[in-house]
Design a binder for these strands. Structure first.
Lengths: 229, 229
DNA sequence: GCAAAAGTGTTAATTATACACCCATGT
DNA sequence: ACATGGGTGTATAATTAACACTTTTGC
């Protein structure tokens, strides 16, 4: 039964780049590392792959461990396997990135115990090992993905306004958009449903709330329709 | 020193999806599996990750083992880690895809010993384990990548004609292009150098040979110039 | 002389960009 | 009444798509 016994075995870690969006800025959720090597330094949330779980399961488990959240958008990013990437031993790390609605997981909840904290993407502390490379790749992936697929909605509450959505896109792509063009374009896809409610937080006048209609997107996505940014 | 000893270790395999291009068709290089489980079936070329090599090194080693080729375009694709993907034991597989100029590695060379063979992409035999999924993903990746980056050239000889290049793109994207538009577009990027030679294989009249000027592409790629297909 | 693939420009259609004013509300 | 962000349409520019005939040469 053990055909492979002659081959070496390796530790496999999972690291998760957790994106959030708040106050017009993209953020990253980092944790203080609790064990050696690198104890006390900021790092991505991570853990080791168990014997009886798939990579995806492990990633969800690890994300859940930190945030208590389930059903979060999670996508495999890249696998890092340089021999000396972890000074304490040979560890191959499969990186995932997660997109979460930051409102579901406010800093207050966790930072009580100083072990996890949301950082602005452009003000990150020094990170463990090759985690900076991972963040970099995750950001590029998020950009590329957002260009043709509606992943941004994962970072927003279920109900959101067009200006909010635009600010998210501006944060992701690091560029300004014209509000009329943005509106026309996003609405032209017919995947947003205007609600009869307004959000009164952002302005005096209030802005209409919209919902992303995933079903409608799914129907069309099968053809050769896709977003374009 | 061994901080992680409590965690489980796993076999890590590398599998390589090897693309080639010949007679206007995209091809895949497959091998006959030499050992159990699955002995005698067609599969991707693969192997196990060694103790002292990075993932990239292992992928190159495995590709070299089959083709004797070095300096081949190779890119990590995805990591497959379902618990039961290999019936013989828990193996996590990191898939890579390679683009090779098929002329550098003709079927004759290898198929002498019936162990490796080029297959048309749309006439693949049944594959081992989850290898079909891998091929599928590799093809989608090749398409996506080709849309903005000049990877196609890796599949052609150093000197090639515009009609050849167009046929390659048609094979990758599975659609026909207009030859005037194709020519205008590809030449407008200024990354092809017309040679004073003709290829007389493909037609009576002969077609001018071109070379991809990687340097010139690299210069421009740094701005926000990129191909668009 | 004819079959087969190479090569060449122009026009129409579509898509993207630029741009300025009024609205609703809380203070 | 004024400051703040929300909401709306059109004209121009840029890009992409459609399209047909001539050239070369081996047979």
């Amino acid at each position: 039964m053990e055909y492979y016994r002659e081959y070496p075995k390796h530790f496999i870690a999972i690291d998760v780049i957790i994106f959030g969006f708040d106050k017009n800025k993209l953020k990253l959720l980092l944790v203080k590392r609790l064990f050696e090597p690198g104890k006390g330094r900021w790092s991505l949330m991570g853990g080791f792959l168990g014997k009886e779980e798939s990579l995806d399961q492990a990633a969800h488990r690890i994300l859940h461990q930190l945030t208590s959240l389930q059903d979060i958008y999670l996508e495999q990013l890249y696998t890092y396997g340089d021999v000396n990437r972890d000074p304490a031993g040979r560890v191959v790390s499969v990186a995932y990135y997660a997109l979460i609605d930051l409102d579901k997981f406010r800093s207050e909840k966790i930072s009580e115990n100083d072990q996890a904290c949301w950082f602005n993407l452009n003000q990150l502390p020094d990170l463990l090992f090759d985690h900076e490379m991972m963040v970099d790749k995750a950001l590029r992936r998020l950009r590329r993905k957002s260009r043709t697929q509606p992943v941004g909605f994962e970072l927003l509450p279920e109900k959101f306004t067009i200006p909010q959505l635009m600010k998210l896109y501006e944060a992701i792509f690091q560029q300004k958009f014209d509000k009329r063009n943005f509106r026309n374009k996003i609405l032209s896809y017919g995947i947003l449903k205007k609600l009869n409610e307004k959000d009164m937080e952002g302005s005096r006048r209030g802005a209409y709330l919209y919902k992303f209609e995933k079903d409608r997107y799914m129907e069309r996505a099968s053809d050769d329709f896709h977003l374009e940014w």
